[in-house]
Design a binder for these strands. Structure first.
Lengths: 196, 196
DNA sequence: ATTTATTATGAATAATGATTCATTTTTTGT
DNA sequence: ACAAAAAATGAATCATTATTCATAATAAAT
């Protein structure tokens, strides 16, 4: 078995256990059992419990960034790009519900050290949105007075909160696609009726 | 000293300590010291550590709901109402930064029991938004195809995520009011340029 | 002033679980 | 097939802390 295999097996087990119990209630022995390794083995691949969390975050957000950048590569219309981003973000939930739950938890931990450590990857992810907005302003698609730095947060926050609802509720009212489109639609066109 | 005084003293101390260290890293003795009572005294007012968190959430969200409903009472324009909600939400941060941090953490805890227990109060808070949207659709101000159930989450998520940035960063780029207006503006009018 | 009831204290308990490391198992090289 | 190196094991350690409860302080009642 290659080294990376066991590393990954532990990471995946940790995602499951963290999602189920939360970071602090998760025991190392739980993760070990889930990964089918001995407790001590975990310490051959990670320095400590925090390290599992951190490395999990880095790795998984990294993958997500790669994937969404790939999807956006051949699109030039900023409106469409925003929709692609939204749909991809929401569909993470379908494929990796547990991961999403863990990332949401982590992002709100109050441990300053941990928070700052992971902020860089997270910022890279939401900066994709501000880049799109900025681009859309240059091409004249988007209003100039909109602040990309606010939009990226607001857009992410909106999607993330919908994810949270989804992860929570047994039988969601809306489909993921529908939700992504609704949110994109609101951000693009607003809610107010216009007489054109 | 009235009973409620000590109860409140402990609650307020808990907010500070939870914000600083997070729920799991906060020790009962930390809270006791902060509240200037003995460790054992806490157990005369709360059943256990979780109970402090739960009762804190209930009480404080309750107050927030009361306040914002009061502010909305004399306003009938749904556009203005949304802005009032946003500004009030963001300004909580100015007055009670620590509380906001704790509520954000709590809301994402993965302990199912805790989560469900507190969901009712939270839902009451965001339902204020869906009520506004619904009302705005009836008066013809808002587009019919917008789903109030999605908007309430998206709007809250957007505001909440901006709060998080604010709580995190030492010297924020934007003022709270400005941020609240930006977000309300985007939700109302969108980002796309119109040729009217 | 004295008794009774209420409230507060904080040291002791007892459970928990992250981490270590001596030992065992597996892999690699010859 | 054997020795050396690498990887894995899991029981024991040891620090940590929520909670309890015998005792003390304070307040209320008579």
């Amino acid at each position: 078995m290659r080294v990376s295999d066991k590393h990954q097996k532990i990471t995946q087990a940790a995602v499951k256990v963290f999602a189920r119990k939360g970071f602090f209630n998760a025991r190392i022995s739980d993760i070990a059992k889930e990964a089918k390794v001995a407790d001590g083995t975990i310490y051959l691949y990670f320095n400590n419990k925090y390290d599992i969390l951190i490395s999990l975050f880095e790795d998984e957000i990294g993958k997500i960034i790669l994937k969404v950048k790939l999807l956006l590569e051949n699109e030039t219309d900023p409106l469409k790009m925003l929709e692609i981003y939204a749909i991809h973000h929401m569909s993470l939930l379908q494929d990796q519900k547990e991961l999403v739950e863990v990332l949401q938890m982590e992002l709100r931990q109050s441990n300053k050290f941990i928070k700052e450590y992971r902020n860089t990857k997270f910022i890279e992810y939401i900066d994709i949105v501000s880049d799109i907005v900025h681009k859309g302003q240059q091409t004249g698609h988007f209003r100039q007075e909109v602040m990309p730095g606010v939009v990226k947060r607001a857009f992410f926050g909106a999607l993330d909160e919908m994810s949270r609802l989804w992860a929570l509720s047994a039988k969601p009212k809306y489909t993921l696609e529908e939700t992504a489109r609704q949110i994109t639609g609101i951000f693009l066109y607003g809610m107010v009726v216009r007489n054109s």
